[in-house]
Simulated scan of single mutants.
Amino acid sequence: MTQAERLTREQVAEAGLADWRPLLGRLRTRFATGDFGAGMGLVTRIGEVATAAGRHADLTLTEASLVVGVGSPHAGGVTQADVDLARVISEQAASLGIAADTGGVTQLELGLDTGDTSRNAAYYAALLGGEVVGGEPYDASGQVPTVWWQTPPERPEDEGPALPKQDFEQRWHFDVWVAEDEGEPRVQAALDAGGRLVSDKAAPAYWVLEDPDGNRSCVCTPAAR
């Protein structure tokens, strides 16, 4: 296998990247920098090692943390080159005394029930300031969540776990992606905050929840996919 070929979920797990979690075809982590200056120091280090490797990383720096993502969209997921870069980034963070906080790693995706994906893709790409990639709106700047389409099933068995009927039509829903070991804790936190479990039949791939008003969302993990 070359450095540019997409790795399987099992191969990513075997890499032993304790600081990182696979989410939506990327490796993601959050470093608890503690303050903005320390975060800037780590950003500089990441820039240096990524440039030296001919790679790049997506960085979101806030006052007390730094979220980092690495991946290879052209390969459709995570490659060995991404794994190697993630490992070097962890080494750089450790050398600065900065620890990873993977418990809060999250990726939000918006799902729309629609039978006309082509027309909606163009509309939402324009609305969100992105472009259509692979039939879906894509924002290369990372400013907005990813959007995907949930088309009406052709056969009843395509619907997945049967869910109770809603009293109203809901066409948008959140898919909240978390690491495999964070799925159940995130679901429980939502339930403790007033949510309701609609279905766990597809768990640990996803759980369907409702907010107090009955709007449904899913907590998703890479498990069992």
Rank of each mutant, 00 (worst) to 15 (best):
E91W: 04
E91G: 15
E91C: 07
A94R: 15
A94C: 02
A94F: 04
A94T: 12
I98N: 09
A99D: 14
A99N: 11
A100G: 07
T102C: 01
T102Q: 00
G103Q: 08
G104S: 11
V105W: 00
T106L: 08
Q107A: 14
Q107G: 01
L108K: 06
G111M: 03
L112F: 10
L112M: 07
D113M: 03
D116T: 15
T117A: 06
R119W: 00
N120S: 14
A121V: 13
A122L: 07
A122N: 05
Y123L: 15
Y123N: 09
A126W: 01
L128Y: 02
G130S: 10
E131I: 13
E131Q: 14
V132T: 10
V132A: 04
V132Y: 02
V133L: 06
V133S: 10
E136H: 07
E136Q: 12
P137F: 05
Y138K: 08
D139L: 13
D139F: 03
A140T: 12
S141F: 11
G142L: 09
Q143D: 09
W149K: 08
Q150R: 10
P152A: 10
P152S: 00
P153N: 05
R155V: 04
E157H: 12
E157V: 13
D158A: 14
E159K: 14
E159S: 15
E159Y: 06
P161H: 13
L163D: 03
L163V: 14
P164E: 15
K165A: 15
Q166C: 12
D167W: 08
D167R: 11
Q170N: 05
Q170H: 06
Q170P: 06
W172P: 03
D175I: 02
D175P: 01
V176P: 06
V176G: 01
W177I: 07
W177P: 01
V178N: 00
V178R: 02
V178A: 00
D181S: 15
P185L: 14
P185C: 09
P185R: 13
V187A: 03
V187C: 03
V187R: 14
Q188G: 07
Q188V: 09
Q188N: 13
L191G: 06
D192G: 05
A193M: 02
A193C: 07
G194H: 09
G195T: 11
S199C: 05
D200Y: 01
P204C: 12
A205C: 11
Y206K: 06
Y206F: 15
W207F: 12
V208E: 01
L209P: 00
L209K: 05
P212I: 07
D213L: 12
D213R: 09
G214R: 08
N215Q: 09
R216F: 05
S217W: 13
S217N: 08
C218L: 07
C218A: 13
C218P: 07
V219R: 10
V219M: 07
V219Q: 03
C220R: 12
T221H: 05
T221N: 10
T221M: 08
P222M: 10
A224L: 10
R225Q: 11
